[in-house]
Design a binder for these strands. Structure first.
Lengths: 157, 157
DNA sequence: GTGGGTGCAAAGTGTTTGCAAGTGT
DNA sequence: ACACTTGCAAACACTTTGCACCCAC
């Protein structure tokens, strides 16, 4: 997502905050700046760490209290990558339909969208008697480059 | 899955157990009978409860020690439905490519397979430079029947 | 007999919450 | 001023583990 998109998303999140009569504190500011300033997936613990770099006074409790706001408002998506912890995806606001491919070799996560896929998912839902609301697709794959060249372009592995 | 399929799967799991030089105890027997005797998704706690009905001496610890064997051997799949707990899917052995549609209205889970979907997923993976290994698709949907008739065929809701 | 298996209860781990003090509006 | 927020530490819920005894092979 571009920097401008991120800024726009942040602005809309602040409106969400305001519409719920919630307040902007320095701790929330640090957390929000962090979330809308990265493309990377993160854990709650990482978010705490990064936010603390901006404002030392951010506590674990506040991170855990702020995350649900971000998820509820739709700007961040909760992900279960099958690793030990839950991850959060900050790229959801502008790409609500994106999916994830996780490389088994290098742990790289590739985000992608595909219109045909969406159409097919909708057709399947209808065939089963439902209307699609949201979907999550995770593809676990191995890196072709690694197999051919013995190295992976995504990460030295 | 048919009863015969379930029995075949159970037999293959017992071979897996044997190949690892693990032993068959009455507690494991009860847990395994439970898993290969249901089509329903379950939590660790439910598995404990059901297994205890067959053998009172099954403990929580043994359930938690046996579940990884079932997952590792590929007969049960771990699922994160976005509800509070992890669920386990016992229908994975004969249908490793199946996906899930979860009805937001009635919590019903519909399992489905689709060849076109698999082909598309593989094509996408290749396009991105990877080879598909496994995939998980979860569709969250609402029930058409409920909207039209005010009731849901899957569950009175 | 031996090495894996068991139940129990204690310890872990990630997340939530009660409380008293602090602060944005 | 008032209601929302905070950090802290205790509480939680789920899962894992150390231990001494047990039992399948």
């Amino acid at each position: 997502m571009s920097v401008a998109d991120k800024e726009a998303a942040k602005k809309r999140f602040l409106e969400f905050i305001e519409s719920k009569n919630l307040r902007m504190t320095s701790q929330r500011q640090a957390i929000i700046d962090t979330v809308f300033g990265t493309d990377e997936h993160f854990t709650a613990e990482q978010l705490l760490e990064w936010s603390k770099e901006k404002d030392q006074s951010v506590s674990r409790a506040t991170v855990y209290r702020t995350l649900p706001l971000l998820v509820e408002s739709g700007f961040v998506q909760e992900m279960d990558l099958g690793r030990e912890n839950k991850y959060y995806d900050p790229n959801y606001a502008e790409h609500p339909h994106h999916n994830h491919l996780i490389c088994q070799d290098c742990d790289k996560i590739v985000e992608f969208e595909d219109e045909k896929l969406e159409e097919l998912e909708e057709a399947i839902s209808n065939r089963l008697g439902f209307s699609l609301r949201t979907q999550k697709l995770q593809i676990s794959a191995s890196c072709d480059q690694l197999k051919k060249l013995g190295a992976c372009k995504n990460k030295s592995c």
